[in-house]
């Protein structure tokens, strides 16, 4: 099986989908500069650099999607999405509904975020929950190169606008990526490790922290199940709730601010739908209500680490035993 970085997996998915469908094109800041292989294969009409102006990049993508193309745009860093909010939220997310279904907006917005490069809060802000809260949009954040490729292929084929977050900390981590046509449906979580005592739900780089924690917990005789959401909307409630119903304990882990993050929704779902099965309080681990600092130790401290995930899960299990 080929080994690719997550960044290369994104490039492979783009190339395959551009071969697969002539309506697919990609543009954004430095897209043509960085992806010369795509320019060589598909030409400058389908692989375009743009002015450094996120609003018009996103607006152009929404207009093109509403008129028969399937654009992918690269807005670089997630905080830059603030410049594109009107186009993504008010146009892409609402004009299908407001027009009574006359239009659809098959477009994918790529944006990087998360700890790893020490770039500070104006380049690193896990704001994915904003888009989950916006009707009409889908939201994806993969944790492995294989998923990145298969989920991006699905996102490009989806008839809805998809905001696709790339975790900076995972971009150049290699992983096995199956050859050939392989799509993962949006809205399907992956059980990365099966377990019986506690459910750890996460997405992006903290999935790996959860897996490391599960290994530690196994050494303590605690069997942890690790669920990788992969897509935040649609959310695979069935997989989460089935697991929590079985284990009776839930820790939701993400790098994004805990306050009103995706974890809050998952905790609420568990409380509403699995209350009778819960053997300990649902617990969330996430970043503080603070912008991310550039300094390496502060940036790392923002992100829930394996040790704290393991300690939290262990305390929930101890609580039940007591």
């Amino acid at each position: 099986m080929p080994v690719l970085t997550l960044n290369d997996a994104i490039g492979a998915a783009l190339a395959e989908e551009m071969r697969h469908d002539p309506r697919v094109l990609i543009f954004g800041e430095g897209v043509a500069t960085k992806r010369q292989d795509l320019v060589r294969e598909f030409g400058g009409r389908r692989v375009r650099n743009t002015p450094l102006a996120e609003g018009i990049i996103a607006g152009t993508a929404v207009g093109a999607a509403g008129n028969g193309l399937r654009p992918v745009i690269d807005l670089l860093f997630a905080p830059f999405l603030c410049y594109a909010m009107d186009e993504l939220v008010n146009s892409a997310g609402k004009l299908r509904f407001l027009s009574g279904g006359q239009f659809s907006f098959p477009l994918v917005t790529l944006a990087m975020t998360g700890a790893g490069w020490g770039v500070g809060a104006q380049h690193n802000h896990n704001l994915e929950a904003w888009f989950v809260h916006s009707p009409g949009l889908k939201v994806v954040m993969p944790s492995t190169p294989a998923d990145a490729k298969a989920l991006l292929k699905s996102a490009i084929r989806d008839d809805n606008p998809v905001v696709f977050f790339l975790d900076i900390g995972l971009l150049y981590t290699p992983g096995d990526v199956p050859d050939g046509e392989h799509c993962i449906p949006l809205g399907q979580a992956a059980v990365r490790r099966a377990g019986d005592d506690v459910t750890l739900v996460s997405y992006g780089k903290t999935v790996h922290g959860c897996l490391e924690a599960a290994e530690t917990l196994a050494g303590q005789g605690i069997s942890a199940e690790v669920i990788d959401l992969r897509s935040l909307k649609p959310l695979d409630e069935a997989t989460i709730l089935a697991s929590v119903t079985r284990t009776g304990r839930l820790v939701v882990v993400h790098e994004a601010n805990r306050l009103c993050g995706v974890g809050a929704e998952i905790a609420a779902q568990a409380a509403e739908k699995c209350f009778a099965s819960l053997r300990a309080p649902v617990t969330r681990l996430g970043g503080p209500d603070a912008p991310v600092a550039a300094s390496y130790p502060l940036e790392q401290a923002f992100v829930p680490q394996a040790a704290s995930i393991a300690a939290t899960a262990a305390s929930l299990c101890a609580r039940q035993a007591a």
Partner: peptide
């Protein structure tokens, strides 16, 4: 919007029509 008459992507956010127009034209 009335797509059958070619009146597309009507937006009431002042200026949104300007942001959307290049994409509609690119697709044309």
């Amino acid at each position: 919007s009335v797509r059958e008459l070619g009146v597309v992507l009507t937006s009431t956010i002042v200026g949104a029509e300007l942001a959307l127009a290049p994409g509609v034209a690119l697709a044309q």
